[in-house]
Each structure stands twice: as structure tokens, then as C-alpha cells.
Design a protein around this nucleic acid. Sequence first.
DNA 1: CGGGAGCTTGAGGGAAGTCAACCGGGGTGG
DNA 2: CCACCCCGGTTGACTTCCCTCAAGCTCCCG
Lengths: 245, 245
Amino acid sequence: MTNEQVGDVSSIQSTRLFQSNYLADDDRRALSAIAAKARSWPAHSDIVARCAPVGSIYVLTHGWACRYKITREGARQITGLVVPGDMCNLDSFLLPAIDFGVRTLTAATAVPVPRDQLQALAEKRPGIARALTWFAIVENAMLSEGAVSLGRQSAQERLAHLFCELANRLGNRSENKAEFDFPLTQEQIADTLGLTSVHVNRMVQRLRAEELITIRNHHVTIPDMARLAALGGFDKAYLHLAPSS
Amino acid sequence: MTNEQVGDVSSIQSTRLFQSNYLADDDRRALSAIAAKARSWPAHSDIVARCAPVGSIYVLTHGWACRYKITREGARQITGLVVPGDMCNLDSFLLPAIDFGVRTLTAATAVPVPRDQLQALAEKRPGIARALTWFAIVENAMLSEGAVSLGRQSAQERLAHLFCELANRLGNRSENKAEFDFPLTQEQIADTLGLTSVHVNRMVQRLRAEELITIRNHHVTIPDMARLAALGGFDKAYLHLAPSS
DNA sequence: CGGGAGCTTGAGGGAAGTCAACCGGGGTGG
DNA sequence: CCACCCCGGTTGACTTCCCTCAAGCTCCCG
């Protein structure tokens, strides 16, 4: 509930791309003009299948999704969580097929933006080109931080880091507290953090025992962001959020 | 030796950015015009310090470098290896300061491209804007693949994957064999793969024992790429190389 | 009320980490 | 020109974090 955007009409206007500082008003109008009709998916279905040709960039307006890859042995690694306002497959802007899949974690709605038209727009409107580059760079920064987490942090630290990141990305922090709807199962958390669901379970319990987080009804509460951030070695600088949040 | 580019004059012309298919001839001329004089660094020195303001993108022409972060506890994670032809800090195109450091691994030379001028160029020349976005997207793909490796592969698999990636990026494969100069210490490999140097040592020995790689005098030989790729679950698709290589 | 997905718990094992010592070669300085 | 030093590679013993397998539980939903 708390992180429902009131008045969200499932349109491109509610997305970070649209709200980018790099866009002028007529850039926004042009973008609105090429956005296709919003489409919805049930939970656990592919928005974009791995290596399939894709003609659109999907901008998520409702629900959660993830980018993921499957190893030969069948293990899954989630390489990025996609929350409302994010682009699912920015890479499709220049790549006709992407080597990862995008799958919904909940029922979700996304606005397709046709690649050809977006490319044409970027050609004529430097603001749009720059906004896209900006998002690619920020995605880069998140992946780099993820590499540090996967490579050099313990399971507990990774969990703390993940919850801190989401609290910031979802943007409903108030002072030192935060809470947000959180639809992931422990198995999906495991696939994000490079762990097993069993171990995630034990570590979540430990975080609970230390009163660092509460998870109930798919809703996370963080009573003391500073303490959780300290545990997870979290510094939001890499998210490059607008100063307001 | 084998991967020296003969005739490399330490200029921007030898870099992947310059050779991008997205650039027209006059884009290339404009790019050459704003590139500053090449600068050299000794081994193990910062090209860009973490969080320091940076006014240029550095395009590496000689030697190796890496992007890295240090955790609170002092552990290092290398988030990307930078080889000749690569950009060290593409992120600086839009970010006035980056939250990672770029450090040379060997003596190295790079060409600084002033950010302001590059931005102005991208504004007027869509080809340049698109080339930059392209590189950001490919960097993204490499980081995503790295996440899979860090999250879901064993030490041996990660090593095999790393050597396969480098063999492809350095572009001197011939049929099923590959060899290239490789300046990293085992500790630096460890920092790349999220391991310790002791464990890297043991696993490298195992790869050697199975005749999958030879390392001598900072030179790697891979007698059977297919076998190493199979071990590392490596598929070069994510590198989005030009079809020629 | 039954079924299933997801959470929880336990026992045991294995991959990788830690600590510590030794080796070996290339560079430096006396 | 040789001795020394230091960095990087190697090896061994021990530890620990996380995985695996397996079973039981809880809650939601039909």
C-alpha cells in the first residue's frame, strides 16, 4: 500500500525515463507520442525471452520484474530487479536480441516503446539520447555495486545491502525508517544474491532477531536505516538519485 | 608480444570507440580533434581516484587497467578489466565524479577526451551519442555476465570463464587455440573473481594439470578453447563483438 | 478440508577462507 | 658482481561459511 503511487495511470508519464531531467517538454511529448498501449502480464511470465528478437523497450508501470540468466546446470542468477518506473530491457535500444530474459515477479504492466521509433527520436533529440545513456550508466553503477556485494560480502551483508538499495530506489524513506511492499520469495532473493533459499531463510531470521528488518505479508519494514546500512556497507551514492530523495 | 598491435601509435585511432560502426568519417575527425595528448602512468597508480571530480574520459591505448571498489573492511573488488582500446571511465561522460577508482595494472598510456567537449559533440552528432550508448550497453552486458559468474559459478568455472572472455576480448584467437599477454597477479585475479589468492593459486594449478591453460612469463596459452569454454560455461554472445572476430 | 507453495529446521558435507611458513626469481644496492 | 630483499607464487593444516538433502510446518486458496 504505502508505495502505491497515487494517481498512477499506467502510462509512460509515471516512469523515470519520462521524468528525466535531461528531457525538455517537447522531448516528453514526442516520447508520449510513440509509446504504445500498456500491456499486462500475470506473475511469473516472460516479458522478454532470452535471445528472442525484441522490437520494443518495455517500461514498467506496475508490479515487479527481474532480468535473469540461467546457467547450464539450471541455476538462476537474477542480474537486476525492475521496479515501477524502470526500463526492463534498455539494452534492446541498440541490440536486436538480448542474452538475458525479463520475467515478471508479480502481475505487472509495462508500456512498450518501439525501438525503431525511439532510435529515430534519439537521433533528432539529443535530450532523449542523453537520458538513455544516463540510464545505461546508472544501471552500470548498480551492476558494479552488485559485483562488490556478490564478490566480497557475506550473506548477511548482501541481504542488508539489498534491502537498503530497495528502500532507496522505491523512495519511501522517512528520516531513518523505511518500508515498502516486497513481493520476492526467499528463493528469488537467493537468486539475486547468489545464495540458496535455505541460507537466505536463516540469515533473514538473524536480521529479524537483531530487529534490523521485519517482513510480514510481503511488506518490509526497516526501523533503523542507519544500522542496516552500516551492516551492509551501504552508501547510496552509486544510485545517483536526484538529490530530493 | 603476440597481442601488441603493430603500428599502434598511442592515439585515439587505435581505440574501439574510434572504430565503432556507428561513427561516420567526420564523426571520427571531430573526435580526433578534441582528444587531448596521450598521457602515461606507471604500474599500480590511479588514473581516476574514487569520487574525485574528473573532467575527461580516458581511452586506454597501451597497458592494462581496472575499475575497482574497496569495501569498508579493506577488501578489493575489481569490477572490470580495461584492456587497450577500452574506455576507463565511460560513466564520467555524464557523472562529474564516479564512485569507483580506475588503476593501472601495468605501465599504461591513455588518451583523455574532455567531457564537456565530448558532450557538446554528442549533442550535435547522433553517431557519437549512439556509439557511447552502445559501449555503455556492452559494459552492462559484461557486468551482468560477471554477476552470473560471481553468483553461480565455482572458482574453477570463474577462472575458465575469465580466460575465455579475455581471449575473445583481446582478439587473438586462431581456430580453437588462443594466447595473450596477461599481466595480472593471482591476487588481482582473486579480486576480480571474488576469491582469495590462495584459492586462485590452487585452482590455476588444477587447470594447468588438466592442460586447459598454461601461464608462463605473464603469458597465457589456451590449447583448446572449446574445452575451456565448456568448463566455464562460456558463450561469447554477451560480448557483442563484431562478427569478424 | 485437502493441496501446494513457500517458510522453517536439522544434520552432515564440501568449497573456499585463514593463517602461516617457505620458495624462487628478478631487481637493487653495497 | 654478488648478497640481499621483496614480491608473488606455492604448500599445508585448520576453520568456517554456505550448500545439500530431507523432512515438517504454516498459511492461503480452491
